[in-house]
Design a protein around this nucleic acid. Structure first.
Lengths: 234, 234
DNA sequence: ACTATTAATTGTCAATTTTACGCTTATTAT
DNA sequence: ATAATAAGCGTAAAATTGACAATTAATAGT
């Protein structure tokens, strides 16, 4: 026996969602779809999985091909497999999301690859079920960011507390007390204060911080619900 | 154009992981694989996705076929798509996990469907990458249960606080103070005290509780990290 | 070179929540 | 009756949170 008999074989694609943060708003990177159907409609970065690559590899390859991005935070969201999600032919899509530092790639993305940033709330309608993917990814990001220090992926290596605050406020659509926010975020022990300041935003300037790589693992989980510390166990 | 040209089509399967709780330990339901390769090896409940069903539908169907389970909590975990995960032919697997009340189905599962429960920590080695799936699902469950009242799916409609405590303790591999646990869990407002007791576990007997369906939505999120309440926003 | 302005940062205190315990209670078996 | 067992209630110190006010550093305008 070399093959499974009598089973349906399907197209498998990967769609990549890219989040960025411009200092004010959480944004999403879109491109105009390059082939039919729905050619020239706004879309996530997508492509078919090849015979000998894993889904993770396909996601990296496709993201790189369509945006030039490489080595960025990339995580599988989930698989979308409605039989009618693609009108041409049944295609399963494995959806990924990436988090990048928007400033680091802005020029290359818009000039070279003709992709465009949209604020999450003022996004055009997308092809197929890509709107659902975005909504799920947004919820997932909110959810995950309550427990994981994942939003730092959206900021430069050196960032300020006001920047971080803005990011949280925009993601959760709320406003937070900066004094309490600072205290809470610093109490995690994840941040290392730098000696220099960022003076773009104010006269006084705000101190830069970096993630403390040494304590990152140890202090990863400064949260609580029913468990004292779910991830330190076992 | 009616088809995408020159693209690889792949087999797509679904694998279902079933969790249960016997009052002492978290358990997982396994069956002996019914066909080659690896026939008669321990495995998750799996099968191929058919032409006109979604992945969710396939998961329900396959779970029902192999265990008789129906209408239970079932959620997609993630997609496993390593090109070599199946030695016969490349097959993408979309992994699902189910949470069930073990007592409700025990007889049907073991007698009729010849599936077997194993404590998560004393599980035999499984076919293909199913071991990875189990490990990921366990982590995911731990993770999710810190923020979502999801573990109730593993208990009968009426359950006691000592039962719930045992479940948390086993999932997180730790011991918790019963007094603090009670206070914390009751403070969520999610539980409704019943008038009758369960006297199986002790002489005194422990009061039954039910989930308060009315307040379930409202009190879903009694937790905090950086956000006052991430899910009530927007 | 002062002064007004702006945003960052530090600080305070009451209220709430958590932690770490001890004690009482209900029930059954001896 | 009473000993044994696990359930359930209580409590005080410690830690965290929430709601604020005050101070500080730097710049820009006069």
């Amino acid at each position: 026996m070399t093959k499974y008999q009598h089973q349906t074989r399907l197209l498998a694609a990967v769609d990549c969602l890219v989040f960025g943060f411009d200092g004010q708003h959480l944004k999403i990177l879109l491109i105009k779809r390059g082939f039919e159907p729905m050619k020239n409609q706004w879309s996530l970065m997508g492509g078919f999985i090849q015979q000998n690559e894993s889904a993770d590899e396909a996601a990296s390859r496709i993201l790189n091909n369509l945006t030039g991005l490489q080595g960025v935070y990339l995580e599988q969201l989930r698989c979308f497999a409605d039989p009618n999600r693609d009108p041409i032919e049944r295609t399963i899509s494995i959806c990924y999301f990436a988090l990048i530092d928007i400033n680091r790639y802005e020029k290359q993305l818009t000039d070279e690859f003709h992709s465009e940033w949209f604020p999450l709330n003022e996004m055009p309608s997308l092809v197929f079920d890509h709107n659902d993917m975005v909504e799920l990814a947004r919820q997932n990001l909110r959810y995950k960011a309550t427990l994981h220090p994942i939003l730092f992926e959206l900021l430069p290596t050196k960032f300020t507390l006001p920047q971080l605050l803005m990011l949280f406020e925009d993601l959760y659509g709320t406003s937070l007390d900066k004094r309490n926010f600072s205290r809470k975020i610093l109490s995690t022990g994840l941040l290392l204060k730098q000696k220099d300041k960022n003076k773009e935003g104010s006269k006084k300037g705000a101190f830069y911080y970096k993630l403390d790589k040494k304590h990152y693992q140890k202090n990863f989980h400064k949260f609580s619900y029913l468990m004292p510390n779910p991830n330190n166990l076992l």
